[in-house]
Amino acid sequence: MSPTVQCGAVSQVVVVGGTHGNEMSGVCLAKHWLQDPSELHRKSFTAEVLLANPIAVERCVRYIDRDLNRSFSHELLSASGSESDSYEAKRAREIYQKYGPKQSSLNFVIDLHNTTSNMGTTFLLFKGDNFALHLANYLQTKCVDPSFPCHILLIDIPEGGHVHLQSMGKHSVSLELGPQPQGVARADVLTRMRALVNCSLDFLDLFNQGTEFPSFETDVHQVLYRADFPRNEDGEIEAVIHSELQDKDYLPLKPGDPIFQRLNGEDILYNGEKQIYPVFINEAAYYEKKVAFIATEKTHCLVPALKVQN
């Protein structure tokens, strides 16, 4: 039996909306909580609210100059600022200064996202962040909604190191909810996200107050590779996600299953050798990143018990 992991109490909790300005659940909730934060108060802390990319929110676009959620690299954060920097690079530095790691405190970041993919409730977290895994496990148990089943997806850290906003937290999770079109706030998705945030804060509060969370086993999805659309010589998309793959995030895809369809009726089949679990199928924001879906494998992990360090 693995020993209990002990962590210091969480002293700063930041709930972030509008990291992408057209993902409306987090935008609406963050704006609401900035006006009325009473919902975010717990015995051991009051969560802070951050609208991360206010200009992108105002214009209802993902970002202005570059993806803010790829702008928290050591290189960008440590550079001495200049006027010519992109809006998001400046914004990342401002946010990092205010909410980034401090010696005296242990911070937890909850970043709110939406996807156009049928990903239900996805917890995006870093490999080895047992604290975040406990939070995900708590939500999987205490905050159940059959319309938005829960999945854990490990964030793929680029070779150069961290780039995501949530990496400024000692521990962190992104709540990725879908499907929801960009620029649209759906009541079902918003209500779900709100319940998840509240339940997350409950978990952090229980932890701070000394509740011990027993060890558990869980499935997690790990990124294998990104698959692009078939393209012609001009780089234009030649085929669309196959109707049999559309909306099938987290379901097994076997060799020989159709993945794309062309307008001439031809199907393109998955020709890999092993079964994969595709996610982010047909995410609007990934067309420009040349990603039609992300292939993952499902693995099993054992998470040791967790308790606050007195």
């Binding site: 079109p181 649209v184 669309v240 996600i241 196959h242 109707s243 369809q261 609007a284 924001a285 067309y287």
Partner: peptide, 11 residues
């Protein structure tokens, strides 16, 4: 519809 902006759905 329904189709999100910036997405192509086969159906």
């Amino acid at each position: 519809g329904p189709q999100p902006q910036g997405v192509l759905r086969a159906d």
